[in-house]
Every structure is written in C-alpha cells, then in structure tokens.
C-alpha cells in the first residue's frame, strides 16, 4: 500500500520525512517497544500510541521506516529531528488505534501474523 493511501485512510498528516514514492506491505500495532523488536518483517508500518524518542530508536533498530502515531499523540521536536536524521517518516492521526487498524485492514494492509 502506498503511504499516501495510508495517510488518506487515517486522515493523517506527515510531521517528519517524506511520503511520496514510499510503500508499506504490512502493519503491526503495539505500544510495547519490546513487542515491536520481536517482529522480523520488512516494509512494515508501525501503528502506535507510544510517542517518545524510544519509539524512533526502536524503529531504527527494527528497520521500520514509517510510524503512524494514533490517538492524537504528537511527536516532539526531538522525535521529528531524529526521525528525519534516520530517514523515518512520521505521521499523526487523531484516530484511535482500533479505528486506525480497522480502517487499514479493511483497505487491504496485511497483518504481520
């Protein structure tokens, strides 16, 4: 799924990085960073309500290039800076995690397992 489509579905806005020519194949949602670190999947969208610097660091280690922050969580300036430095695209949506995941699944974004 093209990232621009994800942004449309979630009524999200890009707050760091680039959304064009960027696609994701699978989605995974968790607020637990250790959970995220157990997943071994490429081209994955991380959907999370955990908004702090470790969300970006976890994504760096797990080779995740796009994070959707749900529940109207806002990325800090430090998070945006680190995401830009690491080439991670950060989007924000006011949707709850349940709604965000439901809409993406219904639109064809596959689960990791």
């Amino acid at each position: 799924m093209e990232l621009n489509q994800v942004i449309d579905i979630l009524n999200a806005k890009v707050v760091a990085g680039n959304a064009s020519n960027f696609s994701v194949e699978k989605g995974f949602c968790s607020d637990l960073m250790s959970d995220v670190l157990t997943v071994d999947t490429d081209k994955m969208l991380l959907i999370t309500g955990m908004s702090n610097l470790q969300t970006i660091r976890t994504s760096e280690m797990a080779d995740i290039h796009c994070i959707a922050l749900v529940r109207n969580k806002k990325a800090t300036i430090e998070m945006k800076g680190l995401a830009m430095e690491l080439g991670i695209t950060l989007i924000e949506t006011s949707f709850s995690m349940y709604r965000a995941v439901g809409e993406l699944y219904a639109s064809g974004l596959q689960p990791v397992y």
């Binding site: 637990l32 960073m33 959970d35 969300t55």
Partner: peptide, 9 residues
C-alpha cells in the same frame, strides 16, 4: 511508560 519492562528483553 516508555514502552519497555514487559519481560521480553
């Protein structure tokens, strides 16, 4: 609260 401490590390 930082997303760790779930006993998975």
């Amino acid at each position: 609260a930082m997303g760790f401490g779930a006993g998975m590390g």
